[in-house]
């Protein structure tokens, strides 16, 4: 018997089929958890993110609703995982506001560097990020890993609001080029 596709499972989840959620969970646990862990740098917080993601998926409202025709299901799951992480980062940040305000330009870079450096040498993302100029590393850190708003990035980097989009895009593009040059482990299902 063929494995149910992600979309089959999603449909069953919408019908409140607990088993379907469990199958989907098993399928994506490692990928999503690993990602949440990269974002949060903390296993407990990463578990909170997982909780949030599967809660949203089960409830199927608002952000927990997959709109077919807009990208792969796995990409969408990664997107809500990223958004749940960003959300939690922001909640946790509220308690650290004072530190945050004193952050100097270089104080947030270690976020990314440390996060990436802690990991083993083989980490492709780390190598790819490191090949980028500082400014691009920073865009990736602030936009992708910390999930900042356009305005926050503009303020933090002291650049015009209108240039943020272009810079983020360029940084992501360059990162992508490096990753593709090296060839990736493509997660397939």
């Amino acid at each position: 018997m063929a494995q149910p596709t992600d979309l089959d499972l999603y449909e069953r989840i919408r019908q409140k089929d607990k088993e379907a959620l469990e199958v989907l969970y098993d399928r994506y646990e490692k990928l999503l958890y690993s990602f949440a862990y990269r974002m949060m740098k903390d296993s407990q917080a990463a578990e909170e993110v997982m909780q949030d993601v599967f809660m949203k998926l089960w409830r199927g409202k608002g952000a927990g609703q997959y709109v077919s025709g807009r990208g792969k299901f796995s990409s969408w799951l990664l997107t809500i995982t990223r958004n749940a992480s960003i959300d939690l980062i922001r909640k946790k940040k509220v308690q650290e506001v004072e530190w945050d305000q004193r952050d100097s330009v270089h104080e947030d870079l270690p976020g990314v560097e440390q996060e990436i450096e802690d990991k083993e040498e083989r980490n492709q993302l780390r190598r790819a990020v490191h090949t980028l100029p500082d400014e691009q590393q920073r865009m990736i850190c602030l936009f992708y890993f910390q999930g900042m708003s356009q305005r926050e990035i503009a303020e933090k980097c002291d650049i015009p609001l209108g240039t943020v989009k272009g810079r983020v895009r360029l940084a992501l593009k360059k990162l992508r080029e490096h990753l593709e040059k090296e060839g990736g482990i493509v997660y397939e299902r």
Partner: peptide, 10 residues
Amino acid sequence: GDLPTYMEQT
């Protein structure tokens, strides 16, 4: 989209 697949798995 698939940047996480380039990250180390945990």
